[in-house]
Design a protein around this nucleic acid. Structure first.
Lengths: 108, 108
DNA sequence: TACCGGTACTTAGTGTTACTTTGTAGCGGT
DNA sequence: ACCGCTACAAAGTAACACTAAGTACCGGTA
């Protein structure tokens, strides 16, 4: 039986990561730590990497390899123009769903 | 490539249906029409039936067969005690995710 | 020197879920 | 006799978050 939050994150996690990248470019490991600071402590590391591969292949982020002082080189992801459009669409869809659900909640 | 809303509905649609059943017991076909009235026009009929089978098997709803004036007998679903607990948990998880995302949005 | 912990990324496999499509079946109206 | 609406069922597909395991590099310590 799956976790409830896990299922809810489907479709929203990508938007969350895009929002984080919109603030500032970041690499995978950094994103997971930023998410923890943001309160999303339960998100697995492997999930983020898989998501980053997906959005890279869809061409909504630009990637640069940057050497690290400790460990393997970092892959720094930056939101490009398409990514910004995608993020805008995410907020729109989120608002739509969120409004409807809140509307539903005020009568339970 | 999937619709963005489709992915977002994963994990939330079940809660939405539970919320509708909490207002008043209903059968599958009725739920789909109520959803349309609620603004969820894009949700497919087959999706609801599959979902109802799932929550019935998990034992969070009670089922009663009621003859219909037109068409095959209706399966009327009622939220039981476990279902109410499940719904409460849904709202809790929703609030958690929703708050975090809104927090993230106020800085983009 | 050998080991350990922290950093950083990769990949293969699993479970859940919403959608699509197709089918069955009864009823009323023309 | 046919069509449209009501009502449910089931098989197959796509997408995505998670798990688990692995690779690799570095600094510190015993």
């Amino acid at each position: 039986m799956a976790n409830q939050l896990t299922e809810m994150l489907k479709g929203t996690l990508e938007g969350i990561v895009l929002a984080i990248l919109a603030e500032q470019p970041a690499y995978g490991y950094e994103i997971t730590t930023r998410l923890r600071d943001e309160g999303f402590a339960e998100i697995a590391e492997g999930t983020i990497y898989a998501l980053l591969v997906r959005i890279e292949q869809r061409g909504i982020v630009d990637v640069a390899k940057v050497p690290s002082e400790k460990g393997p080189p970092r892959k720094v992801y930056t939101l490009n123009t398409q990514g910004e459009a995608q993020l805008a669409e995410f907020w729109q869809t989120w608002r739509l769903l969120s409004d409807r659900i809140e509307h539903l909640r005020q009568r339970g």
